[in-house]
Design a protein around this nucleic acid. Sequence first.
DNA 1: GCGGGTATGTCAAACTCCTGACATGGAGGA
DNA 2: TCCTCCATGTCAGGAGTTTGACATACCCGC
Lengths: 141, 141
Amino acid sequence: MEDATQRLGYRVKRAAAALRGALDRALREHDLTVPQYACLELLDQRPGLSNAELARGTFVTRQSMNTVLRGLQDSGLITRPAAADHGRALPAHLTEQGRRRLDAARSAVYAVDQRMTDAVPPERLADLLADLDRMAAAFER
Amino acid sequence: MEDATQRLGYRVKRAAAALRGALDRALREHDLTVPQYACLELLDQRPGLSNAELARGTFVTRQSMNTVLRGLQDSGLITRPAAADHGRALPAHLTEQGRRRLDAARSAVYAVDQRMTDAVPPERLADLLADLDRMAAAFER
DNA sequence: GCGGGTATGTCAAACTCCTGACATGGAGGA
DNA sequence: TCCTCCATGTCAGGAGTTTGACATACCCGC
């Protein structure tokens, strides 16, 4: 195991890089970046999430998500109250325009995901998902 | 499959994010970034690689690798000839100091990789590696 | 020989993301 | 009640990466 390209980390990195590139290309025609799309998708499934919660859900820092949210807000894709009624968390929601943009981009993203999914033998998909979860969990603290 | 967090792309992204974070933390004490380490490692295995070849091997653009190489050069970890004798490609090589720094960082990186590897059942490791390769290959053109 | 195609190194500008830091608001124990 | 701890939103600065572009150098078919 002296060749670093044989190690698990290298393979994960390569697969993730390929995925990221494909997503970038697919989302560009919808004028969305990957974090922006991830944010919209998360917000569609769980409306009212705060900045910090969205950051954790998309694997970026609060600060990065803050700028992402501001951009989405300026584009009119999401809304956030100016002040919090309880605590400091500001619950974000999709606007009608945001929902439409998400619907348009979703098909492109799903096609990318499907292309990747189709590349693995179907009988191994469940194990693969479980292993990816275990790898991620191995670094949580 | 309406929950986006159940899709393969999300799992890959999460695993890669966890790995990247762990590598960042592990390499910080060696004053190296992930691309810098990847570059050194690749250069150790295949001395004389050019900027563009290193970029492809580490999944970044030529421009990014160029700045990485310049930093490594300024730190005295690699050397590059000022002019190319054949074509424009400038073959890079590790210096003695670069080799020492790599050796020091390698154990930390290997520990991270091993921790991730240990998280997956050993009888599935070979399949996992193969599937990751298939996923990456699905996006090549 | 030579002209198109390809690959390389490099520059400039913009963008994204991160680290570090600070102030605010809530929860729980002394 | 007070006060320590934790989570959140935000600001400032900097580091890293990307897109777009340009000039140079080889290759190959004509």
